[in-house]
Design a protein around this nucleic acid. Structure first.
Length: 331
DNA sequence: AACGTAACGGTTGAT
DNA sequence: TCATCAACCGTTACG
């Protein structure tokens, strides 16, 4: 798909119109502000059927988003794409790491044979040599630079072998966690046992707003929403990416670089695709390459675990009932 | 009239 | 680098 927006040619249009007259992009999530709007309206007592009509979102979609919100506390879409690790489970990766730590000169094919020898894998699920090479390259990397006390001789082996590449989950009894994969850890799938602490890391956006700062935005065409206290966990990076890369956005234009102290206020804007692109671009958007903007933004994860997370959204078409006006109780 | 949900055509991204 | 395919998407239609 062509998600590159030519500023000079606003004739480009994509998306379809549903029976209610609302615009959607087949296969892609609704923009986060609309999802939030659905939840906001439900919270103040608007019936789902009325939400559907007002926002011009199908009632099936409203039902699904509300059901998920009530079940998980998150309005964000699930993780799209990717695939579960079929053979390179965390346990296997951990063992590969152990082998490599003990003998850095080990070849991938030797590691493969040792996985079989040690009964870590059988012939049906042992990773290929190329998979092992990729694991060594991407997930383990140079072993000479462990940031946590490489001097100790033990190489931080922690003989449990569960200290491997997937993001560490804070609580941890290793029992069920070890069997989980990325999808299992997504906010919508995460089991309650993992989120036992009061500040659940499951909730990407808390149910309340701490502020609604419209005046601070540079353009009157944009409204800024603050997502307070986003409990960032690297496991959820995919969630953020998936949500923020909605095709309704004309690229996630960075309006200020994330700073090292975790303040990413006004981190980027969403530009509505059928808005007048060249008129409403954020003035600070310097690069129009979506991929570059995007990766430069997200590569700087992780932020501090509870940093504020801000999204600047455009002035949406009135058909959506936007811009959002938070209930007074949120102000 | 409301709404839960399966079918459908679509996109995504780790393997 | 590229294809695969299982995850998810929102809409539609049915009950």
């Amino acid at each position: 798909m062509d998600y590159s927006f030519n500023d000079s040619n606003s004739n480009q249009s994509y998306g379809e119109v549903n029976q209610l007259g609302g615009v959607f992009v087949n296969g892609r999530p609704l923009p986060t502000p609309i999802r939030l709007r659905i939840v906001d309206m439900a919270n103040i007592g608007v019936r789902p059927c009325d939400i559907s009509r007002q926002l011009k979102v199908s009632h099936g979609c409203v039902s699904k988003i509300l059901a998920r919100y009530h079940e998980t506390g998150s309005v964000l879409p699930g993780a799209i794409g990717g695939s579960k690790p079929r053979v390179t489970t965390p346990r296997v990766v951990g063992r590969i790491r152990d082998y490599k730590v003990k003998d850095p000169g080990m070849f991938a094919w030797e590691i493969r044979e040792k996985l079989l020898l040690d009964n870590v894998c059988d012939k049906f699920n042992v990773p290929s040599v190329s998979s092992i090479s990729r694991i060594l390259r991407n997930k383990i990397g140079p072993l000479s630079q462990p940031s946590n006390g490489s001097i100790g001789g033990g190489g931080g082996s922690s003989e449990n072998s569960d200290s491997n590449s997937p993001p560490p989950i804070p609580s941890s009894s290793s029992s069920s966690i070890a069997l989980m994969n990325k999808h299992d850890l997504s906010p919508i799938n995460i089991p309650s046992v993992v989120s036992s602490s009061s500040d659940s890391i499951c909730k990407i956006e808390p149910p309340t707003w701490s502020s609604y700062d419209q005046s601070a935005v540079a353009s009157s065409y944009h409204h800024r929403y603050l997502y307070p206290n986003v409990a960032y966990h690297s496991t959820f990076q995919h969630q953020f990416e998936s949500a923020m890369k909605s095709p309704y956005t004309g690229g996630n234009h960075i309006v200020s670089n994330p700073t090292t102290n975790g303040d990413i206020s006004s981190a980027f804007t969403h530009t509505h695709h059928y808005h007048n692109q060249h008129n409403h671009h954020h003035p600070n958007a310097t690069v129009n390459n979506t991929a570059n903007n995007y990766s430069s933004f997200f590569n700087s994860f992780p932020y501090t675990p509870t940093s504020n997370f801000a999204v600047t959204t455009p002035y949406y078409a009135s058909s959506y009932g936007l811009p959002l006006t938070p209930p007074t109780s949120y102000k």
